[in-house]
Design a protein around this nucleic acid. Structure first.
Length: 840
RNA sequence: GGGCGGUUAGCUCAGCUGGUCAGAGCGCCUGCCUUACAAGCAGGAGGUCCCCGGUUCGAGCCCGGGACCGCCCACCA
């Protein structure tokens, strides 16, 4: 209650106190009642359990919390489903590093002990990011935190796996996969990124069995040891006669059939392609088409296998050099070659395509309903342009490799014995069964997030109350990895779409436009920013800079948010320090400026509501800023200074202040909650209060027009004063020679520091045009010559504008074809300009 | 190789269905300790709205072409 002692808002002091009150209130934890249609829910994109809050989380958290708080204030039972993801590779890597630092390896530790260590790790660090979300002010349901690896969740995952397997959509196959030597695991296509590298393109001659030779080009000569064919284009006249004959693989001696396949480009290289089904995705496809043998010479450890004969045991790079060396005369040429090569998104190492026995999921049957859901609008993606990317991806979907050679994750519910395979949620009866050591791709379990968190497969109250959820907010790169898969799984298992709206937010880049990343040193820690500027400022800033495309981080926007919080704080001090105690907040306008601010308030209320619902968060934030600064503080509070703070004015002030705080609360919850506590007659927490509603009856065009004229007049007078070198504080004698100021003349006089009393026939030393006429300054306020020069300049400007307007109106095309009101407006403007010129 | 987005004040960005649309914040300059806020207030300077054509009475805003930047997708050895 020491509001008046402080001159500025201190987030560090206020935030912990407010957070505590929120958490204690139970507001964030709704009882599972009512229907999903009445209720409002968002499932948080689960952050990695051992992760730390980065800018992406902070932005997404701000977006979601704005939506959540808004709907909670609308009176809906609101749940923000919270939890973390076990994040297979990322978490395992962290713990592996820790173990390596102790001089051990996970293999030495053994699987059980290792997994134990990861759980310990999770216990120790898993709470960090949750606490960081609290710092941001995120009003998640902290009483019900889920984890993708907790028992109930794991049950859902295994259930889905078994179910899809029973339906024939999950199967095991030998297939060429993206092998990540860094994590020693297969990874999915989506976890691969292309990087441009400079390799060497080698031209190698393969002798033909009956004499002669063909020359092929390759950047990976070491893989030739696994060649099983040579291919040419069927239409290539140079080689048609060779199709069906046989080449001899140098160094190995294997006989290679020469085959014809459309894939081969006649205009690239020599037009002859060596086919290595075991180590190249294209060759693999060709090999399957032609029934070729699949030879593997590179192992999962990235070294050459026994199959590579003399090269066995060498790394790929060592083998490449030795093979080139051994080729001798057969090597015909080599040249530098720049091309894109796949790298692991996870480990950063170059992908080694390998044939391996993995579990796959057939996506096409599930993709169909997911496509329909977006096509028919059951799921709406914002901005709309993103839905095309979603559809394109689903329409070209490919099987998903879901097994990972990791220890941390959901181990496959699959057991083998001799030639048998058993799939089930519990271990099979009998001896000798061995469980598949692999775990599921993390995204497999994430795909169940919106319903598994609510208790599925059981028919729980939570599920009945909150599924489907309302909005899923995420960054663009997650659209395929996660969003599309959630839609598929939701439709297949929970019987409905998992959410009705998807909001795709910006990716925040470093201020210099590069990626924000820890390794580049371009990261900005949102917690540091919260320490510096306050959580409200960070939230405001992130929302204000967000857009439909990527944005550079702008600390100016965060500062703008800090200023807004501070401004509200001080405006509140002013209001609360002056109002009559014991008066109920209520709109009780007495004067034109009262009617004006109430009218403006209705507009910002309406605008803010529609902007939130349209996911236009930058406009929400900046619109609030403009209202608080541009209308409430700069004008209304200045206009009422000096008035008697009677009950009517006090009630109106408190009403406007309270409404403003409530309106801004979803964006800047801390400062508004803190101030709300000081507004009399406000019970309970603002977070649990009602969101303002626009009342048409308070919209007042007349007041807006009149006060609009005051604002224009005062601005013109201040500008004149400043340019004329007249001291801002000096009271000037003046005469108001303008229409429309019956009620507002004293307001103009107050803010422009004029004395409008009398003046009679005194000569004007300066004339300032204002809406509806002019203000004449009396007495020797300015050097007459300066004033005359100024008038000349003004005349010049006016003549220019008049000429422009006249020209426009003289244009027959304009008068004939432009809308009538526009032409009329131009005429009015011309008249006004002429009148102003006349006055000078 | 396809597809998408961008290019507006020194910086970061707004500008809806073509007609006060040339704006905001920051920065800069000038003046003010005006009793809510000096992390404040008031005023101001600053832009051939990437280039070239076109449509239109009228174009940052629409159409065509070009330049540059960024992103996504794709199996050219």
């Amino acid at each position: 209650m020491s509001l008046q002692d402080k001159k500025r808002f201190e987030p560090a002091e206020v935030e912990p106190r407010i957070t505590e009150r929120w958490l204690a209130s139970g507001l964030f934890h709704p009882e599972p009642e009512g229907s999903p249609q009445e209720n409002y829910s968002i499932a948080i994109p689960p952050p990695n359990v051992t992760g730390a809050l980065h800018m992406g989380h902070a932005l997404n958290g701000s977006v979601q919390d704005t939506l959540i708080r808004y709907h909670r204030m609308l009176g809906r039972r609101t749940k923000w489903i919270l939890g973390t993801d076990h994040a297979g590779i990322a978490t395992q890597k962290q713990v592996e590093r820790a173990i390596e630092a102790e001089g051990a390896t996970r293999e030495q530790l053994g699987r059980a002990a290792f997994v134990e260590r990861v759980w310990e790790w999770r216990t120790r660090y898993g709470g960090t990011i949750i606490e960081q979300f609290k710092r941001l002010g995120a009003s998640c349901d902290y009483e019900q935190e889920r984890f993708t690896l907790d028992d109930g969740y794991a049950r859902a995952v295994l259930r889905v796996f078994c179910d899809l397997h029973a339906k024939g959509l999950i199967y095991r196959d030998n297939y060429l996969v993206n092998w990540d030597p860094g994590s020693r695991s297969a990874i999915s296509d989506l976890e691969v990124e292309d990087r441009e590298v400079t390799d060497t393109l080698y031209h190698i001659a393969y002798p033909l069995k009956g004499g002669g030779e063909v020359v092929v080009a390759t950047v990976r000569p070491e893989t030739m040891l696994a060649d099983t064919a040579i291919a040419v284009n069927p239409g290539d006249e140079r080689y048609q006669h060779l199709v069906g004959s046989t080449a001899i693989l140098p160094l190995v001696g294997r006989e290679l059939p020469i085959i014809a396949d459309d894939y081969v480009k006649t205009d690239f290289g020599t037009g002859c392609l060596k086919i290595t089904p075991g180590h190249d995705p294209n060759d693999f496809e060709i090999g399957r088409r032609h029934g070729l043998e699949e030879v593997t010479v590179i192992g999962e450890d990235g070294r050459m296998t026994e199959e590579a004969g003399a090269f066995a045991g060498l790394t790929v790079l060592e083998a490449r050099g030795r093979v080139v060396e051994a080729l001798g005369d057969a090597l015909r040429a080599s040249e530098p070659y720049v091309h894109e090569v796949p790298y692991s998104h996870r480990s950063g190492e170059r992908i080694e395509p390998l044939i391996s026995l993995q579990w796959f999921m057939d996506m096409e049957p599930l993709a169909e309903p997911a496509i329909d859901a977006v096509r028919d609008g059951r799921v709406r993606i914002h901005p709309e342009s993103q839905s095309r990317r979603y559809l394109d991806w689903l329409q070209n979907i490919r099987p998903w490799c879901i097994s990972r050679q990791l220890w941390w994750g959901h181990q496959l519910p699959v057991w083998y014995r001799a030639g048998e395979t058993y799939v089930g949620t519990t271990a099979p009866e009998g001896d000798g069964w061995e469980r598949d050591p692999d775990v599921l791709d993390t995204w497999f379990s994430s795909a169940l997030w919106p319903f598994a968190t609510l208790g599925w497969p059981d028919d729980t109250p939570d599920l009945r109350a909150f599924y489907p959820t309302d909005v899923l907010s995420t960054a663009r790169d997650i659209l395929f990895l996660w969003v599309a898969r959630m839609v598929m799984m939701g439709l297949e298992f929970a019987g409905d779409v998992p959410f009705t709206d998807v909001y795709v937010h910006s990716v925040i880049q470093a201020p210099d436009g590069r990626r924000m990343s820890k390794s580049l040193g371009t990261g900005i820690d949102p917690l540091d920013e919260i320490d510096r500027h306050g959580a409200d400022a960070v939230r405001f800033g992130l929302l204000a800079m967000s857009s439909t495309q990527d944005v550079k981080y702008s600390s100016e926007k965060v500062q703008q948010g800090q200023q807004l919080a501070n401004k509200l704080f001080n405006a509140s001090r002013f209001v609360l320090g002056n109002v009559t105690a014991d008066v109920e907040p209520a709109p009780r306008p007495r004067t034109v400026e009262d009617r004006w601010i109430l009218s403006r308030l209705q507009r910002i209320v309406g605008d803010t509501r529609s902007r939130i619902e349209a996911y236009e968060f930058a406009k929400v934030a900046l619109g609030l800023y403009d209202f608080v600064y541009g209308e409430l503080c700069d004008w209304y509070l200045e206009l009422i200074k000096g008035r008697d703070f009677d009950e009517d004015l006090s009630a109106t002030l408190l009403h406007v202040l309270g409404q403003t705080l409530a309106l801004a609360h979803p964006v800047i919850p801390f400062v508004t909650e803190e101030l709300w506590d000081h507004v009399p007659a406000t019970d309970g927490l603002l977070a649990g209060g009602a969101y303002p509603e626009a009342k048409d009856g308070l919209v007042d065009a007349d007041a807006e027009q009149r006060v609009g004229a005051v604002i224009a007049a005062v601005s013109a007078l201040r500008s004149w004063r400043s340019e004329s070198g007249v001291k801002p504080g000096e009271r000037l004698q003046a005469r108001l020679a303008a229409e429309g100021y019956e009620e507002t003349a004293p307001l103009v006089a107050k803010l422009a520091r004029l004395d409008l009393a009398g003046g009679d026939g005194a000569p004007a030393s300066a004339v300032v045009p204002v809406p509806g006429g002019a203000v004449e300054l009396l007495g020797d306020v300015v050097d007459p010559r300066d004033a005359e020069r100024k008038r000349d300049a003004e005349r010049e400007r006016l003549r220019g504008e008049i000429a422009r307007a006249e020209g426009k109106l003289a244009n027959e095309g304009f008068v004939a074809r432009a809308p009538a009101e526009l032409v009329e407006a131009e005429r009015t403007k011309l008249e006004r300009l002429r009148a102003e010129l006349e006055l000078l």
